[in-house]
């Protein structure tokens, strides 16, 4: 019967290969603190950028067996989200809020002008206790 328990199977090497040539890249690649050079091959996805990239640059100067290395990388991850996901939305949100503020102000002024126009019914009369004169005097014309 065929033996199904065949642990540690290794495919024989397909042949001796020479040293791996060095990959060139235009993006910045970090290396850990104990490594002299970058590896011959590396990934180039999502290169470092902005403030988070600076924090990562600093983090990779700390040996990776130190907790500070990973803590700095976690900090960089959170900064990355803020500066590349949330911050780009801030100008848009600010413009929307500003426009809404201006529109609301204009609407309010217009309503007040209409309200206190000559012949217009007076708004809720506000009286001080003990007085008979209206204190809600608007400028009429």
């Amino acid at each position: 019967m065929e033996n199904l328990s065949i642990p540690r199977e290794a495919e024989p090497p397909s042949g001796e290969r020479g040293p791996v040539s060095q990959q060139r890249s235009t993006v910045r690649v970090f290396k850990h603190a104990l490594r002299a050079e970058v590896t011959p091959v590396f990934g180039t996805g999502a290169p470092p950028r902005g403030l988070s990239g600076m924090i990562r640059h600093w983090a990779y100067r700390i040996p990776e067996h130190k907790v500070g290395h990973l803590m700095a990388l976690m900090l960089a991850d959170r900064v990355d989200v803020w500066e590349h996901i949330y911050l780009p939305k801030v100008p848009f949100a600010a413009v929307v809020l500003l426009a809404a503020g201006i529109a609301a102000r204009k609407l309010l002024v217009r309503r007040q002008a209409l309200t206190f126009a000559p012949g217009a019914p007076s708004p809720r009369p506000r009286r001080r206790p003990g007085t008979s004169r209206s204190t809600g005097g608007g400028r009429a014309g």
Partner: peptide, 12 residues
């Protein structure tokens, strides 16, 4: 050891 420049704790 020839795939992860950023770490010595894990492979590529």
């Amino acid at each position: 050891e020839n795939a992860t420049p950023e770490s010595d704790l894990v492979g590529g």
